[in-house]
Design a protein around this nucleic acid. Structure first.
Lengths: 208, 208
DNA sequence: ACGCCCGTCAACCGGTCGGTGGACGGGCGC
DNA sequence: GCGCCCGTCCACCGACCGGTTGACGGGCGT
């Protein structure tokens, strides 16, 4: 019997997942959580085999909750497998979720049969990735070194709000020249040549 | 007995909605559709009292499906009430859905009780709006004249991809001067002073 | 028929941006 | 202790952008 914990802030989605999974004879939904903090508490309490985790949630998001759950007491037996379940394959948190130790990454438009199969595979310790997620993941890994630094990202965020270089400098207490340097470097990493495209690309990849 | 048609491309969500609604004694889920085209067909076939409609769907989106359903044969009795059900209250399609004739607008994080109450209210012909949606709606209506024209939006879309004014002009077969005119006007309507902020605001409001 | 909005174009100016080519100090890993 | 990356800064230039003013034709409503 595979013990499953369902984590999602939408009652509709929780209800749907529970309904889909609990009719399977070898699956048992042992709990539901509406945010990351509840998920961490319940995971420790219920010791599920698989946690189905939404990413975007109030209080504590899915990435943080995944990290917290998997960081938990390593001495006491097996840790749960975390399968991330999100709406968009463009979500910039895909990489962060995998880094946090997620075993799988499925999309919410997954058919029932694939969802059940994914949970069962995760319980066996296999990695389950939706095809489109797998594609994005390899292309991301391929360009992992190309991610802007923290400071560059910060500058990009302000630029996205429409601030000029001088204004960004004032905001961050640095010279305009420094702002321009950050931007030029960010452009190179994003493969663009102007600030507007940079903002678009960074937003697409979930970096700002 | 209120007859309900559930429309959503995600099996999980459909299952959740059906589970939540069908336990109510006065609600009867008479059908499910996975996209807008199916919804139009089933709405004509099943004559439901209420259609619970997702916005983002393949084939035919929720706005178009809503318009199609409500445009249907007006001579034959009562048309269904369409309640839009979406994930984000920031969705730029809120206004378009209301324009298309949606009776209500609920978010997917709505608790079960509110969802049921919303469907019942819609069946009675009442308008049901999630509080945050209502807030956005009035603020949108207040600035409804400030929306960029089709051509201006088109220019903004290309600008968002990082094209320069000259490049946009080449793409649209118009002079650079015209591109600049469109942009200046779009800036005024969006309340910004540069292209990057314009793209950000337009994206926020779901206009590009 | 008239006005109004949309889309088109021109010339001009000042300011900003993109890019180059440097430079320096601090933190981190080996 | 040495390199390397990150973050900071400067000066300069050409190109592009933001803003203004002014103009013209077509479609749509009254």
């Amino acid at each position: 019997m595979i013990r499953v914990l369902v984590v999602d802030d939408h009652p509709v989605v929780r209800s749907g997942l529970v309904g889909m999974l609990s009719v399977e004879p070898d699956l048992d939904v042992v709990g539901e959580a509406a945010n990351g903090a509840e998920a961490v508490t319940l995971a420790a309490e219920l010791a599920p085999d698989v946690v189905l985790m939404d990413l975007r949630m109030p209080v504590l998001d899915g990435v943080a909750a995944t990290a917290a759950i998997l960081a938990g007491d390593r001495t006491r037996g097996v840790r749960p497998r975390v399968v991330v379940l999100t709406t968009y394959d463009t979500d910039g948190d895909i990489l962060r979720a995998v880094e946090a130790g997620a075993t799988g990454y499925l999309l919410k438009d997954t058919p029932r049969a694939d969802l059940v199969a994914g949970v069962q595979a995760a319980a066996r310790g296999e990695t389950v990735l939706a095809p489109s997620v797998a594609t994005r993941l390899v292309s991301t890994v391929r360009t992992v070194a190309e991610r802007p630094t923290a400071r560059e990202t910060q500058v990009l965020t302000l630029v996205a709000r429409g601030l000029s270089n001088v204004e960004v400098g004032r905001e961050l207490y640095i010279a305009e020249a420094t702002v321009k340097t950050h931007l030029i470097r960010a452009f190179a990493k994003l493969g663009v040549t102007d600030r507007t495209a940079a903002v678009t690309v960074a937003r697409e990849r979930g970096w700002i």
